[in-house]
Simulated scan of single mutants.
Amino acid sequence: MILNALSITMIFIGALSALLAIWGGISSLILYRKWKRTATPEEKTSLEDRSYLVLLIMVIVLLIRLINWPLFYVTLQSFISDIEGAMCIFGVTQVKVGLTRFLEFLKPTNFFLIGGWLMLHVLDRATKTSPLMRKKLLLLSIISLFVLIDSMGDIFLMIGIAPESLVSCCTTVTDILNRPTRTTPESIFGPEYAQSLQVLFFITHLALMGFIGVTLKFRIFRRLILGLLSLFAVLNAFVFLLSQIEVFAPRMMHLPFHHCLYCLWQYVPDSIVMFLLFILGTFSVGWGFTTELFGRQGEAADLLPGYLRKIYWFAFFFLSAFLIMLIIHLLVD
């Protein structure tokens, strides 16, 4: 176990989040089951008071878990000097490969689920009758389970990473000729795949922004359209990941044969902001769909079009800001 301020913070947040997730998940599930069974006005008032208390505490927990994702990588970065053979975060992830890979998949999943729930919560708070309360409580009980798993994973990982562990460098995985990020596009575009992949990314990204713009201009907030838009955002994210690894990261690092994203964040720190903008823009597209999916009920349905418009404006802004940063980097480099 490597003890420093960041690892202790991760363990503390993990333990606190796990305990509150258990309490919040059970409480929200009980409240969900009782919400429409209340008989007297006194019972209803008591139930509402308990619900608002649970929601208040869990909102704080969920906001902390949102911050936990970048904190996770900052903590791994702080371990580099204590891991023999580690030159970047990749080396640290090799100490506990299975658990780390699981958490690297779970954390963005949790980020999306928590963000989507918070969007729904804000919409419901804007109403006078809270028509989405039962849905929020049910979804909160499910998300609490994900938070619990994530929190326990953080604790086990922080405890399990031993100092002076011996690992291999990122180049032994990210820079080999038969890496999947190279062979996949090469099988489609041929030996000159890098240029084609770059062009494809700009096409899909501009198309996504164009579709969002059309949706905003004509207020097309139908569920099918928003669902298809979300699927296209997922496709764009996949092309983004491939193009970052194979094309943009090497250029931005001035290392044409190095393809490690962890090194990119280390050598070009503002690329972290660029990634954050892309993630927020892409997730906002998905959050718009989930908000429409769960938020069209009662009084909330009347507020939904204006609320969705704000979400998709955020998506358009974040994706545009990311694109501007990327183009500036490419022109400067």
Rank of each mutant, 00 (worst) to 15 (best):
93 T>Y: 08
176 I>A: 13
119 M>Q: 07
131 P>E: 02
103 L>M: 09
191 P>W: 00
186 E>P: 12
144 S>V: 13
107 K>D: 06
145 L>W: 12
192 E>P: 05
150 D>H: 00
138 L>R: 02
133 M>G: 02
153 G>W: 00
171 T>F: 02
106 L>P: 03
93 T>N: 07
181 T>D: 10
147 V>I: 14
152 M>T: 13
112 F>P: 05
132 L>D: 05
178 N>F: 15
111 F>C: 08
161 I>L: 07
149 I>G: 01
106 L>Y: 14
152 M>L: 15
182 R>I: 13
119 M>R: 09
104 E>I: 10
179 R>F: 15
125 R>N: 08
143 I>K: 00
129 T>R: 07
170 C>G: 07
167 V>P: 05
131 P>H: 13
127 T>S: 08
96 K>S: 15
183 T>G: 04
180 P>Y: 06
129 T>Q: 04
187 S>V: 15
162 A>E: 11
170 C>Y: 04
189 F>V: 09
182 R>L: 04
153 G>S: 06
123 L>I: 00
131 P>W: 05
144 S>W: 03
193 Y>P: 11
162 A>K: 14
179 R>V: 13
98 G>E: 04
129 T>M: 09
138 L>M: 02
172 T>Q: 11
100 T>Q: 07
160 G>Q: 08
143 I>L: 00
174 T>N: 09
150 D>W: 02
92 V>I: 06
179 R>T: 13
115 G>F: 03
92 V>Y: 06
141 S>G: 02
138 L>V: 01
150 D>F: 00
145 L>R: 12
137 L>Q: 03
133 M>A: 04
115 G>M: 14
138 L>P: 01
139 L>D: 04
96 K>M: 15
126 A>K: 14
146 F>N: 08
184 T>E: 13
144 S>C: 14
99 L>M: 09
131 P>C: 13
103 L>N: 07
147 V>D: 09
182 R>F: 15
94 Q>T: 01
122 V>M: 12
151 S>Q: 05
183 T>I: 15
99 L>N: 03
170 C>E: 09
131 P>R: 05
147 V>P: 02
173 V>I: 10
